[in-house]
Design a protein around this nucleic acid. Structure first.
Length: 115
DNA sequence: GTTGTGACACATT
DNA sequence: AAATGTGCCACAA
């Protein structure tokens, strides 16, 4: 094996973002997660901001279910780059998540990775 | 290398 | 209840 991949990684610390994106893929259908939860789940408690940054750098709505990421209030950030909250709502409902006023019922849809 | 910002969360006022 | 301050990590200038 060669360290070529490592060489490229030194430009940016992809580890954190990779973990964030990877975590999104582990979210079961019909579930959502909060920024703080992701941060804690990947081993960076309190790094909710960094999580948001990671997602912003990877606007792959088709690849990563960033629409499943909501804040502590269960509300959508509404600043992501895919077209609009309307699309967000469609995506969530497509997963079986009901959205009301850009908000989801965390009590029903929040995903507990350690549970 | 320092400063400021950001798709946030929590505690205090 | 709402607003403000502080902490967290990573990135851009």
């Amino acid at each position: 094996m060669d360290g070529e991949e490592f060489l490229h990684d030194k430009i940016s610390n992809r580890a954190f973002q990779n973990q964030v994106l990877n975590f999104l893929l582990t979210i079961p259908k019909g579930k959502v997660v909060t920024y703080g939860q992701i941060a804690e789940a990947i081993g960076y408690p309190g790094a909710a901001r960094a999580v948001g940054n990671a997602l912003h750098k990877n606007p792959d709505g088709e690849k990563y279910p960033c629409y499943k990421v909501v804040n502590s209030k269960g509300e959508l950030s509404g600043r992501f780059a895919f077209g609009g909250i309307v699309v967000q709502q469609e995506r969530l409902e497509a997963d079986g998540i009901k959205v009301c006023d850009n908000r989801v019922n965390l009590d029903k849809y929040q995903f507990y990775p350690n549970l």
